[in-house]
Design a protein around this nucleic acid. Structure first.
Length: 426
RNA sequence: GGAGUGGUGUCCGAGUGGUCGAAGGAGCGCGACUGGAAAUCGCGUAUCCGGUGUUGAACCGGAUCGAGGGUUCGAAUCCCUCCUACUCCGCCA
């Protein structure tokens, strides 16, 4: 959601930003049209309402003075006023609902530093880090390694739940558990995030707050109680402070949490579905920051570094991509993706997406802070990033640390938690 | 899941249809008293939306007593639905 005043006063700026993202800016004109109608309507309602309130007060006075007949006459008059009021109220409500609907769909504007581009092909590689893993044999894909080492049971996952619901078994389950312990410990104990463990289902208001709704309902798993399985812990964590005014002294707030994530992604089947590349259920540590406008771009840089830490410490080869305007999506102002190199699959796999939403989510979720006592509350800037997504990291570990005999060396930082140095076939 | 009780301003707490944005208290701010402080006394202390206007002074209008709907000329107060907290019972991990 953008500042209404910005759209009213500088519609060209808004249009230009939306156009840079390659999205349809005609929504600005729809907004302006409905907005001016709504403002006229609310004026009419408030004037009529003030009038009938005054009249009602008079009834009270007349009754108190015992002038019953005059009071009755006034009542009749008020009834007529009320009928008119009801009509203009209905019109106003309808316009307000329309305005809200449009407002929720107006995309966020890209930050000026975001590179222009139409598709992901124009994303910019910011840095490539770590050694390219070299092999004197043909590296295998993680699905083959996981099968021979009995780390995953994908067929049984498909049987009990469906395709895209992996079962981790034995040392696979243990490696998974080691990974998320390592990640959450690093982000909280080393990088100073406050740890939370969130609910896995949230209500509509929360999903509107972070921007998944109303647009992407088809991508979510929904329950009969109108609450939804979370697609990311971004939703519960960001909404922790929905409708709240934060203390300026507490900013920036940095929060991290581990959760399972559920993505229906209707229509996404068919591409990159092999192994652990694209799943309906996966695990992830998520980092969320609430800060002021002054620091949010610095916070984005450190957020990305925090995500990178995990890959660096695991000794994996990765790169950081700056997402171009055409690929950034509706919500973000600026976004970096972190991709790990998967030598067996021969691809870069996205394991983190770090975004600054500026005040876009804060406006939707009404999350503000008071710059100083007595001052008007301002919207915070909100950022989030994965720190990091588990399955693709799991895949990259197997593929990067595989040996000619099919065994996999456990990265040093995980050995204590996994309980072995090398994963071998039984 | 069943039965019951509650949800009021920063906090505590009164208020069962009429001038209530809401008594009283605490806290906080300003002032008086004091050498200074405490105590005491006086005054002031919500948020949001729209408009005029300024550029973030002021003024006008509106909304807000968990949320939404209803009854009524008029609702914090009556009715309905929902959310939520607590107590008891049942069930479960």
């Amino acid at each position: 959601m953008l500042d209404r005043d910005l759209i009213r006063k500088q519609p060209d700026v808004v249009r230009a930003g939306i156009n840079r993202k390659g999205l349809d800016s005609s929504i600005v004109d729809r907004f302006l049209e409905v907005d001016s109608a709504w403002r006229a309507a609310i004026q009419a309602v408030e004037t009529a309402n003030a009038e009938s309130k005054r009249s009602s007060k008079r009834v009270g006075e007349l009754m108190a003075q015992g002038k019953k007949e005059e009071a009755e006459a006034a009542k009749v008059e008020i009834r007529a006023q009320k009928e008119n009021l009801a009509v203009s109220e209905a019109a106003e409500r309808e316009l307000e609902a329309q305005l809200r609907e449009i407002e929720l769909e107006v995309p966020n504007l890209p930050h000026e530093s975001v590179p222009d581009g139409k598709t992901e092909d124009e994303n910019v590689v910011v840095r490539v880090v770590g050694d390219v893993p070299g092999f004197d044999f043909e590296p295998k894909a993680h699905w083959d390694l996981a099968e021979s080492l009995a780390l995953l049971d994908l067929p049984r996952g498909a049987k009990i739940a469906g395709s895209g619901f992996p079962v981790y078994t034995g040392f696979g389950a243990r490696l998974q558990r080691a990974l998320f312990n390592f990640m959450i410990d690093h982000q909280t104990l080393v990088n100073g995030y406050h740890e939370v463990y969130p609910p896995y289902l949230t209500n509509r208001a929360s999903l509107i707050g972070t921007g998944q709704l109303p647009k992407f309902e088809d991508d979510l798993y929904k329950t009969q109680d109108d609450i939804f399985l979370i697609p990311t812990a971004e939703v519960p964590i960001t909404n922790l402070y929905r409708d709240e005014i934060l203390d300026a002294a507490d900013l920036p707030l940095r929060i991290a949490g581990y959760s399972a994530c559920f993505r229906r992604e209707a229509g996404a089947a068919g591409k990159d579905t092999r192994g652990l590349q694209r799943l309906h259920q996966f695990d992830k540590v998520e980092m969320v920051k609430f800060c002021t406008a002054e620091t949010s771009y610095d916070e984005l840089e450190s957020l990305t570094q925090n995500a990178e830490d995990i890959l660096r410490l695991l000794g994996l080869h990765y790169r950081v991509i700056e997402i171009c305007t055409g690929d950034i999506g509706a919500k973000g102002s600026k976004q970096y993706d972190v991709e790990v190199w998967s030598p067996g699959v021969g691809k870069w796999l996205e394991v983190s997406s770090c975004s600054n939403f500026e005040a876009y989510q804060a406006r939707r979720a009404m999350i503000r802070y008071r710059p100083e006592a007595g001052a008007k509350p301002e919207f915070v800037h909100i950022l989030n990033g994965s720190g990091i997504a588990m399955p693709r990291t799991f895949a990259a570990i197997l593929e990067t640390y595989q040996q000619a005999d099919g065994s996999v060396v456990v990265p040093e930082v995980l050995r204590g938690l996994v309980g072995t140095d090398v994963l071998r076939a039984a």
